[in-house]
Every structure is written in structure tokens, then in C-alpha cells.
Simulated assay, not measured.
Amino acid sequence: MRHLFRYLYAPCFSLGLIGLAVWLVGYLHATLWLLPLLLVVAIGLSWLAESWLPYAVEWNQPRQDRRRDTLHALINESLNALGVLSIPLVAALLPIGTLWPHAWPLWLQVLAAIVVADLGITLVHWLSHRSALLWRLHAVHHSVRRMYGLNGLMKHPLHQALEALAGTAPLILLGMPVDIAALLAFAVAIQLLLQHSNVDMRIGFLRHLMAWAPVHRFHHLKYGTAGDVNFALFFSVWDRLLGTAFHHPHYRIASDDLGIGSQPDYPDEYLAQLAEPFRDTAGHQAPPPLPVGLQRSVEQMHTQMP
């Protein structure tokens, strides 16, 4: 049973929950306010799966971070909801186009929105590891010292706003309807839960397509630029194009591999994390060296980057 669960969890969690949301909103015409409730259910299912089959048992133990991560999730998802609700106002103020493919099936409209948004979000994410200013905001997300579903929703609100703007601005200008925007926001939240999941999942060849936890964990390595890999939110193809795709099937990531190597004392409290990007950074130090098990693979990958 556990062996089968390892292989079925990721596709069933992703396609099942996003598909359920599309069916409820698009075909049963349920209110969009059902989506936050469905997200709460998804968080509960993620927690149950992590408890039953964890990738790292110690990652299920809070490190004085549960309240903080809950605050990040509540505030960031509330901001997402406000962003969706503001679309009619934006449409009234800007010259919104009429190119949106309303005649397409709803599921195909959602998929198209995901692909476009994924590209914009991925590029901002990639730039955030190359711009010192953007990194200050993005570092909040990289300060985690354990990986589990809920901390996928842990971001500085300003950085989340930049990603959301890059991902949704083209869609809004094309005339994206509010229901598609709401389903897109829900799909992003589900993907973030799955991408940071502590479930000991197996995804096999799907790692070449989907940026799920076994791929994304390497992005959170604390060893300097070793984590400058696997930037994609949904689809690994963007990392193939950027030359940043990386996977080491035999390296098992532990708590000691996570965090920000140059800032081991990064603050843990919510308000302190909001303020940290605007503080002096003179206290940075050299990151720790790569473990022997990773060194050759990471160095080879970086020499092949464009």
C-alpha cells in the first residue's frame, strides 16, 4: 500500500484537487468562495499524507515555525483573493483586450492560464537569485529549515506580489475572466503545497515534466549557488530551457542541507521576516562547502549552464 501511495500521491493530489475545483466552479457553478474551503481541505490532506509517509520524520516536528508559516499562508492567500476580486476594477481602468479564448472548454482555459503564469513566475524566481534587491525579498522563503506543505505558502508579500504581477498581467490584459483567475490562484496554492511536501513520493519520469517535491527540494540547498536550480513552479521544461534543471537520485536531503548558508541566523518570527529585507546585510558570511555527495554533480551542472 505504501509503495503504491508513493507513486500515486503527487499526480492524484495535483490533478485530483485542481480537477475537482474546475468541476465544481465550471460545471456545477459553485461559488468561488468554495475554493478557500477546498484549500483548507487540501492542507489537511497534505498534513495527513506527511504524517503517514514522511520523506524526513524530523520535518514533521515544529521548530517554532508553525504559527509563522500559518500567518504567511493566511495573509498571502488573502492577498491572492483580493487580487482576484480586483480584476473587474482593473478591467474598468485599463484597456483590457478581448482575445481571451472564451469558447475553449473551461479546463483548457485554466491549463492555458497555468502555462502562461508559470512562465512569468518562473522568470521572476530565476531573476530573484541574480538580483541582490530581489533576493532580499525572496530570502524569506529560503530561510526554512524543514520542508513541508504549508511552507510552500511562506513568502514575503512584496515578492509574492511581484511574482503574481509577472504571472497574471499578460492574462489580465488578454481579458482573463474572474473565475479562471480564481482557479489559477487555487492551482498555484495546490502546486506550492505539493512542491514543498514532506511526503516520501516517487515521481519517476514525471520529474522531467512536473516540478514536484523530489525536484524542488534541491532548490532549497543552503550551499551558495548550489540552490540556483529548479526554479519552475509547475513545469520543469522552463528549467530545461534555462539550463537550470538538476536532480541527484541518490542524494537524500536532510535538515542540515536547508536554509540560507550565508545567513544562518535569519530571523524566524513573522514580523522580523517582513522587516529583514530592509535591514543592513553586513553580517553575511561565506556559505558552507558542498557535501562530497553533491559536489561533483552540482559543479558539472553549473559548468553546463549558458
Rank of each mutant, 00 (worst) to 15 (best):
S262Y: 15
I121S: 14
V40A: 08
R146V: 04
H125I: 05
F13H: 13
P249G: 03
T31N: 12
Y148G: 06
G149R: 00
G44Q: 06
A181P: 05
W47T: 06
D257F: 14
G167I: 12
E77S: 00
A189V: 02
P170E: 12
R66M: 05
L162T: 08
A272D: 15
L99G: 14
A181Y: 07
A92Y: 10
V84D: 01
A187H: 02
W59Y: 00
Y9G: 01
P62Y: 09
R145M: 08
P288H: 10
P95T: 15
P101Q: 14
L93E: 11
S86N: 09
A213M: 09
A132F: 06
F13S: 11
A232S: 10
I172F: 12
A92G: 12
L38M: 04
Q263K: 08
H208V: 03
L20V: 03
P177V: 10
T70F: 11
T281C: 05
V144H: 13
L15H: 10
V57Q: 12
W212T: 14
M201Y: 05
A254I: 09
H156R: 01
E276A: 14
L20S: 12
A169Q: 12
V22K: 02
I203K: 01
A232Q: 08
M154R: 15
R240M: 09
A81V: 08
G149Q: 02
Q300A: 05
N151G: 03
M210R: 02
A185E: 02
A254K: 15
G167Y: 08
L271R: 11
R207N: 07
A275N: 08
M154E: 00
I190T: 02
I114D: 01
D118E: 10
L39R: 00
